Simulated scan of single mutants.
Amino acid sequence: MDQSIVMDVAQRAISLAVMISAPILGLGLLVGLLVSIIQATTQIQEATLSFIPKLITILLTLIIFGPWMGNMITEFTINLYENIHTYIR
């Protein structure tokens, strides 16, 4: 197997991982920032206060984007298995 093939597959896998994790991380970051702003303005400094809104947001994000994420991973895996004969020489 050629090194360029390995690098291409690894690059596509990393790109897919970033694309799939972006909605979860982005919305979690946004909710965490909003809760932090609310905590700063009300001077409520409870560390566990931001946990529940972020947990709910991530759960809802997984429910909404879950099918899309699953399809992307499935397409990548099917493409990898279909083209495995071109990788091995």
Results as ranks from 00 to 15, higher is better:
residue 62 L to G: 15
residue 50 S to H: 03
residue 69 M to D: 01
residue 12 R to I: 09
residue 63 I to T: 00
residue 22 A to C: 08
residue 85 H to G: 10
residue 87 Y to K: 08
residue 8 D to L: 09
residue 2 D to T: 07
residue 20 I to F: 05
residue 1 M to N: 04
residue 3 Q to L: 11
residue 71 N to L: 06
residue 61 T to K: 09
residue 49 L to S: 08
residue 32 G to I: 01
residue 69 M to T: 03
residue 27 L to T: 01
residue 28 G to K: 07
residue 46 E to W: 01
residue 66 G to A: 01
residue 72 M to F: 00
residue 49 L to R: 05
residue 69 M to K: 01
residue 65 F to H: 08
residue 7 M to L: 14
residue 29 L to R: 02
residue 60 L to K: 10
residue 69 M to H: 00
residue 15 S to Q: 05
residue 88 I to T: 11
residue 38 I to C: 03
residue 65 F to V: 02
residue 5 I to M: 13
residue 25 L to G: 10
residue 67 P to Q: 04
residue 21 S to I: 04
residue 5 I to S: 11
residue 74 T to N: 12
residue 41 T to Q: 10
residue 58 I to Q: 03
residue 19 M to H: 13
residue 7 M to W: 11
residue 68 W to Y: 10
residue 28 G to R: 08
residue 7 M to E: 12
residue 21 S to G: 09
residue 34 L to R: 11
residue 25 L to T: 03
residue 28 G to N: 10
residue 31 V to L: 04
residue 68 W to H: 13
residue 41 T to A: 08
residue 68 W to A: 13
residue 14 I to R: 06
residue 35 V to W: 04
residue 81 Y to F: 15
residue 63 I to Q: 05
residue 70 G to C: 05
residue 33 L to C: 14
residue 68 W to K: 15
residue 73 I to D: 01
residue 45 Q to L: 04
residue 34 L to V: 13
residue 75 E to R: 10
residue 68 W to T: 11
residue 6 V to F: 14
residue 77 T to D: 03
residue 14 I to V: 13
residue 74 T to S: 10
residue 46 E to L: 00
residue 18 V to M: 12
residue 74 T to Q: 08
residue 64 I to L: 15
residue 43 Q to M: 04
residue 71 N to I: 00
residue 60 L to E: 11
residue 82 E to C: 01
residue 6 V to R: 11
residue 62 L to Q: 06
residue 45 Q to G: 05
residue 68 W to L: 06
residue 64 I to Y: 14
residue 18 V to P: 08
residue 85 H to I: 02
residue 46 E to T: 03
residue 24 I to F: 14
residue 75 E to W: 00
residue 14 I to P: 02
residue 80 L to V: 03
residue 37 I to N: 05
residue 44 I to N: 12
residue 89 R to T: 07
residue 80 L to I: 06
residue 59 L to E: 02
residue 26 G to W: 02
residue 65 F to D: 07
residue 50 S to P: 00
residue 18 V to H: 08
residue 31 V to I: 07
residue 48 T to G: 10
residue 22 A to S: 09
residue 6 V to M: 14
residue 89 R to E: 12
residue 85 H to W: 05
residue 74 T to M: 09
residue 84 I to E: 07
residue 5 I to V: 15
residue 71 N to S: 12
residue 53 P to R: 08
residue 36 S to M: 08
residue 9 V to T: 10
residue 39 Q to K: 11
residue 38 I to Q: 11
residue 2 D to W: 02
residue 20 I to E: 04
residue 72 M to H: 06
residue 52 I to L: 15
residue 87 Y to V: 08
residue 19 M to Y: 07
residue 49 L to Y: 02
residue 51 F to S: 09
residue 41 T to P: 00
residue 89 R to Q: 13
residue 59 L to F: 09
residue 58 I to L: 07
residue 73 I to V: 09
residue 30 L to M: 13
residue 61 T to F: 09
residue 40 A to I: 00
residue 61 T to V: 14
residue 11 Q to V: 07
residue 62 L to Y: 06
residue 38 I to A: 15
residue 42 T to K: 06
residue 71 N to Q: 12
residue 47 A to W: 01
residue 69 M to S: 04
residue 89 R to H: 11
residue 24 I to K: 06
residue 62 L to A: 02
residue 61 T to C: 15
residue 4 S to M: 09
residue 63 I to G: 00
residue 7 M to S: 09
residue 73 I to F: 05
residue 23 P to N: 01
